[in-house]
Design a binder for these strands. Sequence first.
DNA 1: ACAACCACTTAGTACCGGTGCA
DNA 2: TGCACCGGTACTAAGTGGTTGT
Length: 587
Amino acid sequence: MVQINNVLVLALCGAILVACVGMLVYILPSLCFFMPFRWEEERYTDGVKWKFLEHKGPVFAPPYDPLPSNVKFYYDGKHMKLSSTAEEVATFFAKMLDHEYTTKEVFRKNFYKDWRKEMTSEEKSKITDLNKCDFSEMSEYFKAQSEARKAMTKEDKQKIKEENERILQEYGFCIMDNHKERIANFRIEPPGLFRGRGDHPKMGMLKRRIRSEDIIVNCSKDSKHPKPPPGTKWKEVRHDNKVTWLVSWTENIQGSIKYIMLNPSSRIKGEKDWQKYETARRLKKCVERIRAQYRDDWKSKEMRIRQRAVALYFIDKLALRAGNEKEEGETADTVGCCSLRVEHLTLHQEMGGQEYVVEFDFLGKDSIRYYNKVPVEKRVFKNLQLFMEDKEPEDDLFDRLNTSILNKHLQELMDGLTAKVFRTYNASITLQQQLNEITNSEDNVPAKILSYNRANRAVAILCNHQRAPPKTFEKSMQNLQTKIDAKKEQLADAKRELKMSKYLAVESKKKAVQRIEEQLMKLEVQATDREENKQIALGTSKLNYLDPRISIAWCKKFGIQIEKIYNKTQREKFAWAIDMAGKDFQF
DNA sequence: ACAACCACTTAGTACCGGTGCA
DNA sequence: TGCACCGGTACTAAGTGGTTGT
């Protein structure tokens, strides 16, 4: 692929017109004949996303491969041959046997119920108790299979790799408006047992196999339409250029729609990403006005206005998510700002020498716990007392508010403003401020990168991006410490030698000491970084919340290679920004 | 007004394969 | 040469927010 730098004039959809910008663009030589420059293409209005779209359709999950006859299932201690359909579902369970959740009541109940639906009537009458089912031979068989896969010869592994590459080349790309673009997820999700996050009421349910007849294909009329597998038909072929997806189907657990879409490196995703940060930068210009407004609204005589103002304060100060309502019993019980309940807050008139402290404790997205003690203004505190008065723990804190009301209000304050823009804005501005504050131009490269990671970490903490500490964390910390100790010893040795050699090769020994000192420093920095990162995930904020131009400008300003901050995939995703941002870019 | 639906972004985790070390 | 480790990636669930229909 050839990379070409140039100026792209983009008029963004609708009424919003954004200024001209430089943008790095990938051009496919083979397609250059038709459309030599991406930036010569017109921008679409009225929600049109493309003019031409051609692709090969999805890759289906491989069909079920029945167990060999020596791998047996036992019911109540006795061998029982299962029908192919029932056997397949049983293997899903067998593959998860080592996981804790196969012991959970809800998981077992849901699985058993759905499994029975797949049984023949004979099987249904025989199998009446999940506890009497013995999947252990199946489980052992799959473990052996995975061992065998690991032990394959280089040649066999190479063959598989080549086959995957072939599939990727055939199905992994599409043509959208004269550009070959990478598809993000061209494989249909295979059948299996649903495992939601946290305490999910539907865990263990059977996620059914997707067939051609479930698939809606979206492509342009004048494209070569993808062919369904022989003997099958698509549910529908449509030509909707107001959407970006290539393929969709309805999933059976929540009844929601799943999509095949393009990779983040694609034009369509990149432009949207850029737009998102431009909206956040527009918020920067008016955020003080909005803050003054909501502070004023804390005093409103209308309860709904006060609630709106306090919620917005939380969203702004704590980077909480909006908090849409959710259907009870359909998903795990998690909340965001607007859906907070009385039970999620504890008010402390005084705590640890601070006045008006609010203690938050709730499960947010992905059932990640949000726990925080925050001193708030007296007015906020008094309002919260008011909102909580005469309510049960399970009552909504903001009973006069929801995300729709809040977003309508925000829309009036700034064009394109919604609750999530505050998260983007606060994340990016925090990175910018932290970098400005803590980067020391005297530092060497590893120390500067430590500063960067610390700035990134401040954002991840703000956004509550947590991770389970890696299973091998303690061990890998220990290993690193061992390395550090060894390096220290080596340094001591080198210093001793330098002292001894008054005349011979002093210069080279000085250099050796210096080199070892540098290595030691690098290791120590690495240890600090890793320790501070134990329970914090940096990836999510880096990928979704931090305007990449901030990081790129920082790299340029301090002479750090961009490769140290962004890996290959990330550089592809942020190609637009890499070209756009000079060393003086400020968010 | 609000519920249902749809499209799209954001999210953590499991897994894989390359790398570097004993 | 085998193995641990780590970064990268695939996967897919879980959010947000707009639109549509009643």
